[in-house]
Design a protein around this nucleic acid. Sequence first.
DNA 1: AGGCTATATGAACGCGTGTTCAGATAAAAC
DNA 2: GTTTTATCTGAACACGCGTTCATATAGCCT
Lengths: 195, 195
Amino acid sequence: MARTQGSHSDITGPRIQTAALKLFAQHGYAAVSMRQIAAQVGVQAGALYNYIPDKQTLLFRLMQDHMETLLDTRRRQAGQGDPEARLRDFVRFHIRFHLERPDAVFIAYMELRNLTPENFARIEELRGNYERDLENILRDGSAAEVFSVPDTKLATLGVIAMLNGVNTWYRSGGRLSLDEVEAVYWSMVRKAVAA
Amino acid sequence: MARTQGSHSDITGPRIQTAALKLFAQHGYAAVSMRQIAAQVGVQAGALYNYIPDKQTLLFRLMQDHMETLLDTRRRQAGQGDPEARLRDFVRFHIRFHLERPDAVFIAYMELRNLTPENFARIEELRGNYERDLENILRDGSAAEVFSVPDTKLATLGVIAMLNGVNTWYRSGGRLSLDEVEAVYWSMVRKAVAA
DNA sequence: AGGCTATATGAACGCGTGTTCAGATAAAAC
DNA sequence: GTTTTATCTGAACACGCGTTCATATAGCCT
């Protein structure tokens, strides 16, 4: 048998990514087999290799797509204004963007050690670009003396770590709405860097 | 051959834990084989089963030991005083304790998904105990109006996430000393929850 | 209608997995 | 010095792994 009814590259390709994203997030890269991914897609394992060269590249592409979507989306809606407004925008953007794709976020920083050194370096470079965005805001705010942070780099990492924490506990339909979560974290971040 | 010179339960037992801790942190639970652990200990794979019933239990015990050490250590040196002093102590304790054992910390929250549901529940209960410690400080401080947090639970999670972030970048001998890192984070936390 | 090609199957490859266990031996007990 | 016991080896088990490839066919092109 081969090429079952309705099958098509344009369909199977994305479905592999979707299935892999979900399974990697759930069980971890090393614990998920190509056969499991294929089963989720509704195909035999061999068929996956029409779309990806190997398992490692599949992981890398998931991460790369995620990081580039993050950077592109951020670039498109990065606000203007004074540092405080830009910081507020960043906080709200970060929380919203990350809560919208918990699986990709989870993978993008839990599976770093499963990347080859070359692939790891490429992902870390993209992450660095994103963090530099926040760092610039904090630096500008410090220069204008509307912020006061003891160390710009550490403040950047501290704020991002705090915001990333949201993904570990937030569940839509829970006690707090997305707007409320954004407000609470914006309040804490604003005060943490306040002059 | 069997029972090579100098071998002993009191030596091999802890060496298994140490080897597993290091390897799990480095490559992830699913990616590490019992044979790799055994090789690190200098023993054949079968010998491991004189000390642990199975791989899953080995992982669980590592996490359990870590969480109980965390709780015990914290209990022994939990400070008294006003909420601000207690919060400062907590921040310093958390950073120091976690930086001292990066492998165990890494495992204790990266490998949660590889625990059976029962084991997962037991670890999460221990974690909850620890978080409640900080939550009480923030609640007391809010009641005394020396702190002002929009939501005690979220502030707890936010602060812990921020502090945990230190483990991802801190390297001893780097730009900042441990004391400086503690001071920087204490400054940010203090302001974030300030009235 | 016929040929071409993209897309799938399913078997096979060599290898590694967690775990068990009979047998061997060093160290402890007597 | 002999017996007992704790500790380890090494082979084996059944199974799953990532990947390859000859083969088959559904759908498009002419």
